[in-house]
Simulated scan of single mutants.
Amino acid sequence: MSQNLTLLYLTDLYYPAKGRNYYEEDLYITSQLKEHFNILIGNPQQALGFLDKADSIVFRNTGPVAYYQEYFNEFVNKVKQNEIPTFNSFDGKADMKGKQYLLDLFEQDFPVIPTINSFDKLHLLPNSDQYIIKLKNGADSIGMEKVSKEELNNTKLEDKLIQPFIDFEYEVSFYFINDEFQYALYAPDKSKRWELKAYKVSEEDLEFAQKFIRWNNMKRGIQRVDACKLKDGSLLLVELEDLNPFLSLESLNEESRDKFLQNFIKALKAIPSKL
């Protein structure tokens, strides 16, 4: 038992996430963690007043930080100044910093959905009748829209990304604690992306996901690699969620869920109380 260690567990229990119940997942997780740590549950927009109470901070289902960006920036700065370790650590290069990484990875020939941010690069995308427009600093599908090729010409691209609309077979997500693979889930019906089932991972699938985990090189935390499976069987990255990925634990069987929690607790216990 590590009851002398206090975790400040940040979550927004009231955030209305489509297809997901943040509060159910976090109440379950904290019910398991309390056997090993002192747990303080706090809202991410009220975290600053509790920093002196925590040995470590767990940043979980907090909703898009775009809604409270200024407060979040102050929180991150204070955490670093006070050398309070966080899980996830705030050194990721993916969704934690917006969508710039999709542009970078596409330019580096990683297997990602082709992504550009200017009309003069349109020739780099495969020909498509429809396109997806995303906010460069968006999250949780905020500001995302689907447009025709004709509508694309009238779109203002300031702080936005363009991707071709991909006719994929299904979406699949790979979940990692630190750099260790935990489980994978997929949505057999792509119109119901949060109705998930266990996914049997092939060696090729795992190498695909690990490629992005290695690239991100994050010190510690939970990461979710979201991909789409194409008709030819290949995978393309949709996003790399490295800040506060929802875990869909309710979609796991008891054995897989227990194994994940054991590994999560082990990872938290391995964090030094001061960096």
Rank of each mutant, 00 (worst) to 15 (best):
G63C: 09
S248C: 12
V76A: 08
L261W: 00
A184D: 03
D232C: 05
F119G: 00
E204C: 03
D258Y: 10
S141E: 06
L51Q: 10
A66T: 07
Y175Q: 08
K229F: 00
N216D: 15
L275V: 11
F50R: 11
R20N: 02
Y175P: 10
S248A: 12
Q108W: 02
G143P: 15
N82Q: 15
E107W: 00
L196W: 02
V225T: 04
T86V: 02
N82I: 03
P16N: 01
Y199P: 15
K99D: 02
F264V: 10
R60G: 05
L240P: 05
Y131P: 04
M1E: 07
L105S: 01
P44C: 04
D129G: 15
D91I: 03
L252Q: 08
F246K: 05
G19T: 00
D232N: 15
L7F: 14
Q182P: 01
N117G: 05
P114K: 02
L252T: 06
L185F: 03
D226S: 03
D189C: 02
G233D: 06
F37L: 13
F50G: 04
Y9W: 08
L5C: 09
L206G: 02
V58H: 08
F168N: 13
I41P: 00
Q69A: 15
F87G: 13
Y67H: 13
S202F: 02
I213C: 13
F72T: 04
L13R: 08
F106E: 05
K121Y: 13
S251D: 00
N216T: 08
L236Q: 06
I177S: 12
L275M: 08
L27N: 15
N4K: 04
D159H: 11
I57P: 00
N263A: 09
L8V: 12
E241L: 00
I116W: 09
F72S: 01
G221V: 07
N4Q: 14
S141T: 07
L252R: 03
K80L: 05
I271K: 01
L161D: 09
Q32L: 09
K190R: 11
I57V: 06
T6P: 05
Q46Y: 14
N153K: 14
C228T: 04
V76C: 08
